[in-house]
Design a protein around this nucleic acid. Structure first.
Lengths: 200, 200
DNA sequence: GTCTATAGAATGATAGAC
DNA sequence: GTCTATCATTCTATAGAC
């Protein structure tokens, strides 16, 4: 449907999405700063100059990947809060949705979680990430007021702990691995809400 | 007592520990690869050459910091397993000890958790880290066999989720911040073992 | 759309004076 | 123990041919 999805004419070459996917994969393997444009080009089987035909700069590759991750995470929050339900219901859905995004878009989210704020592109991503965290913290606080989330832990700390657990998935989850994403989402919710101990 | 603790003679200059601490802090702020030796020297108020008088290479700074973090984490495991107790007791102590190490030695542990394996130094650190993870996973499995840890989640997944939560502390915990490390350790154990929901 | 060739800047590391 | 000066290498990005 979109202009991008129509069949390419002439010799195939590489399109932007394909180049971006390879670049993000390499950024995650070696780190963004440790990966040169020549590294990316080599893995694609072309030269630096050819790569610069597709993208204006190395930072543009980074910016596109970070925007994709942030768009997906913000959409989970927007969609959840637009539906009726208690704060506790919303919180459960946001955690579930975040796990879904992390597993479905692992490469770009991994990149996002490693950003240090060295450049304008990275600082803008950090700004959006902080805004996301604050909205989730407000949700945790509301769930505490409802009495369904324990109130003996500060809402900001509780949010960071749970999302620390969720975010850590990018360090080891792989789409082609042995762990099923649906089962994983169930496990994360189980540990986050009920804990590791056997139900008494 | 040790040779290193005797008073320095002559003009003070900088000693290795001081230089290392500044380097690790900068590595964490900007990322190891994004930080040049000139950056480290500038923050110390001296030149690159003066820094190379204290250390043979940029990688030596990295190696010393990673070894410090790994030594501390392995010591927690060794010390815990040497004591009598059930696997569930040991697991609780290891989580508690890991939080203590993360808060007390946040800079070097942060660096460890971000290593990508680009060089021999980094790969050796990853090897030790994997060995640590496997020993903890064995502990979780033993605690499941005892019946005190829920058995409906794979031991390796459960270990990664809990330590994902623990490790995420380095992203936001600061020694001079508002959160007390003892209280934080209590909160981590509470969420990890009993979950976020109010006790029913 | 891809190539060769290269500009211009920054990097890790060293030599040698003080 | 710190400095100035410098080296070889690598980096991002560009010019211009095919």
């Amino acid at each position: 449907m979109s202009a991008d999805s129509r069949p390419r004419r002439g010799r195939p070459g590489h399109d932007r999405d394909q180049v971006l996917a390879v670049a993000v994969q390499l950024f995650n393997e070696q780190g963004y700063d440790a990966t040169s444009v020549a590294d990316v080009a080599a893995r694609l089987g072309l030269t630096k100059s050819a790569l610069y035909h597709h993208f204006a700069s190395k930072q543009e590759l980074l910016r596109l990947a970070l925007d994709a991750a942030l768009d997906a995470l913000e959409e989970v929050l927007d969609r959840t809060l637009a539906e009726p339900g208690t704060a506790s219901d919303h919180l459960r859905q946001v955690v579930r949705g975040a796990v879904d995004v992390l597993t479905a878009r692992q490469p770009s989210v991994t990149l996002l979680l490693r950003v240090r704020g060295n450049t304008d592109v990275e600082q803008e991503a950090l700004r959006r990430r902080r805004a996301f965290d604050q909205r989730v913290t407000a949700l945790v606080r509301a769930a505490q007021d409802e009495g369904l989330v324990r109130a003996d832990i500060d809402a900001a700390v509780a949010t960071r702990l749970v999302f620390g657990m969720v975010n850590s998935l990018v360090e080891w989850y792989r789409p082609d691995g042995a762990v099923d994403p649906d089962e994983l989402a169930r496990d994360v919710l189980a540990v986050a809400l009920d804990g590791l101990q056997s139900p008494r």
